[in-house]
Design a protein around this nucleic acid. Structure first.
Length: 460
RNA sequence: GUGGUUGUAGCUCAGCUGGUUAGAGCGCUAGAUUGUGGUUCUAGAGGUCGCCGGUUCGAAACCGGUCUUCCACCCCA
């Protein structure tokens, strides 16, 4: 053992137990994606750099993992570029591929490339890892999975309503009650900026507003001032900092505030539709809340904006987000295809479920029954019975060597095996097997011919 | 990318202002118990103190660098 091996910053190994828990979440998410009519696709881990670069802003470009070209790539760089030592001009010459940064941009590329084969409206889901050269923190990794569901080619607000229901269905099924689905609309943000006279400073305005719950009203004002938003404009927007009351109350205040803005009024109208529809349909465990400070990545959202907050009391950033983008495929040359989608933050949902102890304990039951090994003859007899159990769909195994019973039972205990079958010389002679319930220690004897009874016990 | 923080046994952590052979609990192995785990008792094995370099008679401890962890920015799931 020369040096202890390690894995790169922000990456993780997953143990059998962890994979079991992750698959539990994946399976529930997939189940609901499918019942809502979404179809799965997959795209490559890496794309051509030009597909990704420039789609996430300067900040995003910095976080994209670039892949070096193959071969003697340095020798192909001209001397001027090489000696300039400027990463921005050198990188494109030595790297033409990059790891996927999210699933939305590759999806847009997919839609454009396959537009003639796709039946629109196209509802797709995609669950794959993405990579970001970010600095890791709790719940933030350099390699993590995204679970996205998007609809392209449908302008109806019914999609937004369904996506809210989809969030609710998944979190309810996971037993994660008390989540808050925060809802806003880019048109409202644009309307506010218009009304207060900061139309040309929309991004700075919303980025600052988005931090309200983090840095408080004073902090937001300070940041807005620093970003060149006038004091009178901030004053006008001030009532929105402390917007309170039910969704409908907030909406009526907003409607009044935005009356002069055509864009803003349209946004209010859209929110009213979604809120009314959800009120009529009712959610199971989540609550839907208007949040005018919600901005998220403004790069491509044009309509509804979603973000899901973990139940109160759990310290965790958002566990999901999404929104509508009217022209995502435009950057790849396909105009007028509207899309709307949501994403589940698997790693964070995992942490939240862990913290609230919401994983079912059957998950780590990776083996339902273990046969104790007494020696060659007994083991061969066990193998015959084992085969029948496996054929009946039961996860069963035999201890590979005739080690001490103490050791074999301890192994069963550590693996959390609920039943252990013992077939020793006595049992072999009488054609019986002894089944031990590891939870309460009770032992029951069955004849070899009564295997159906054992199967019923194990399946029940 | 900026500022800070962390690293000691498989795991969770002690280890004082530098001073012999670096500790505990849990886990692991063996025995008490040659057909029974989860409880108890006894014994044992496990560590180039993240890595590289420096200061010193002497470094786990001090200094520099580097990697890693976590945190605040930035940004975001």
């Amino acid at each position: 053992m020369a040096q202890k091996p390690s894995i790169p910053k922000g990456t993780r190994d997953f143990s059998p137990v962890a994979v079991g828990k992750r698959n539990y979440i994946f399976d529930i998410v997939k189940k609901h994606f499918r019942t809502f009519g979404f179809q799965p696709i997959e795209t490559p881990s890496f794309e051509n750099s030009e597909t990704l670069m420039g789609k996430y802003g300067d900040e995003g470009d910095r976080l994209i993992f670039k892949i070096l070209n193959s071969g003697d790539f340095i020798s192909k760089v001209d001397d001027v570029t090489y000696s300039s030592k400027k990463s921005s001009s050198l990188t494109p010459k030595i790297s033409e591929k990059a790891l996927r940064y999210d699933l939305t941009v590759p999806f847009a590329r997919y839609v454009v490339m396959h537009q003639n084969e796709i039946d629109f409206p196209f509802k797709r889901y995609q669950i794959q890892p993405v990579w970001r050269a970010d600095r890791p923190q709790k719940g933030r990794f350099r390699e993590f999975y995204q679970c996205d569901a998007d609809v392209v080619g449908a302008n109806s607000l019914l999609q937004e309503v369904e996506l809210v229901q989809l969030y609710d269905a998944v979190f309810t099924d996971l037993g994660l009650t008390g989540t808050t689905i925060k809802l806003n609309n880019r048109k409202i943000l644009a309307g506010i900026a218009e009304v207060i006279g900061a139309k040309n400073n929309l991004i700075n305005f919303t980025v600052a507003l988005d931090k309200l719950d983090k840095i408080g009203a004073e902090g937001v004002k300070a940041e807005m001032l620093a970003k060149g938003i006038t004091e009178t404009a901030i004053e006008k927007a001030a009532p929105l900092f402390s917007l309170k009351g039910s969704n409908t109350e907030q909406l009526s205040i907003l409607a009044e505030f935005l009356a002069a803005s055509e864009m803003g009024s349209k946004g209010v109208e859209e929110l009213v539709f979604i809120i009314d529809a959800i009120a009529a349909l009712e959610l199971h465990s989540a609550s839907l809340a208007i949040d005018v400070t919600l901005a998220r990545g403004l790069n491509y959202y044009t309509g509804a904006i979603f973000e899901v907050a973990a139940p109160e009391g759990v310290k965790m950033g958002s566990i999901g987000g999404g929104g509508r983008y009217d022209d995502l495929t435009g950057i790849f040359g396909l105009k007028d295809v509207s899309g709307v989608g949501i994403s589940f933050g698997l790693d964070r949902i995992y942490l939240v479920l862990e913290e609230l102890d919401l994983f079912p304990k059957e998950i780590d039951r990776s083996l339902q029954v273990l046969f104790v090994n007494f020696g060659e003859k007994e083991a061969l007899a066990s193998l015959g019975l084992l085969t029948q159990l496996r054929a009946a769909g039961i996860t069963a195994d035999i201890y590979p060597s005739s080690s001490k019973l103490q050791k074999q039972f301890k192994f069963a205990n550590n693996r959390k095996v609920p039943f252990v079958v013992t077939i020793g010389a006595n049992e072999l002679a009488s054609q019986n097997l002894v089944v031990k319930n590891m939870e309460n220690g009770e032992q029951t004897t069955y004849g070899f011919k009564e295997l159906d009874k054992l199967i019923a016990l194990l399946l029940g």
